[in-house]
């Protein structure tokens, strides 16, 4: 269970505080996929970072009884000086996982081959994205937090990512934020719409889509 209670967050903008999330409460049962639909700049990524624990809300609380991933979709804390392997080792260490097993899985999933042992600064942006995604898949989370990441890499790799996430569905779940209903449809049957800092929950995707379109 992931539970948000009255979560609010504001950021300074032009010397004034701009509210990004306004009193959001949300319960996500284990093994339930959920999509969060919102336009760019409406606070989707902020919400995801707060669910992850990367950022603290200004007020309200977040409780997690499952193992939640970091927000997948940023190109990763990959240090350009270090190799892909060294970066994978770091991630497995901070999650207390078996270093050998994780690096083997990252190497396999990322399809980086020899580049896995080369400094990340020699990677193309597609390769960096593959490394980042492979690192998150190599660690066993109960819930994967995804920030429109599926748009990274080439078409076959995108498919592979989606299959990997859906394939784990019996033991893990996905929370995905996107501005695109199509992306969300691929993962979840339930959807929330984030509008002006408020979150509205829908059991039906088409209903969510209707509200989302109306607001544009």
């Amino acid at each position: 269970m992931i539970s948000l209670q009255h979560v609010s967050k504001a950021y300074p903008l032009h010397h004034r505080m701009r509210t990004v999330l306004d009193d959001i409460s949300l319960d996500i049962p284990p093994r339930e996929n959920i999509g969060i639909l919102g336009r760019n700049g409406q606070g989707k990524s902020t919400l995801l970072r707060i669910i992850a624990g990367t950022e603290q809300p200004d007020s309200g609380s977040v409780t997690r009884s499952v193992r939640v991933s970091w927000p997948i979709g940023f190109s990763g804390g990959a240090n350009p000086v270090l190799t892909g392997e060294e970066n994978a080792r770091f991630v497995s260490r901070i999650y207390g996982c078996d270093v050998q097993a994780v690096t083997a899985r990252v190497l396999e999933f990322s399809e980086l081959g020899e580049y896995f042992y080369a400094p990340v600064r020699t990677y193309s942006s597609g390769m960096k994205a593959r490394l980042a995604f492979a690192m998150s898949m190599a660690i066993e989370f109960d819930t994967y937090l995804i920030d429109e990441v599926i748009a990274v890499g080439d078409q076959p790799f995108q498919e592979k990512c989606r299959e990997a996430l859906m394939g784990q569905n019996d033991r893990s779940s996905v929370i995905i934020v996107s501005h695109n209903l199509g992306t969300i449809r691929k993962f979840s049957e339930k959807c929330a719409v984030l509008l002006k800092g408020r979150l509205q929950m829908f059991d039906d995707l088409d209903e969510a889509a209707h509200v989302y379109k109306q607001a544009q």
């Binding site: 240090n79 000086v81 270090l82 080792r89 260490r93 901070i94």
Partner: peptide
């Protein structure tokens, strides 16, 4: 405390590699 130990341990290794490994 265990998590913090894991994190700091991983960071020290990483910093050592970054600063002196290259």
């Amino acid at each position: 405390l265990h998590t913090q130990y894991q994190v700091i341990h991983a960071l020290v290794i990483r910093e050592t590699r970054t600063r002196y490994g290259a």
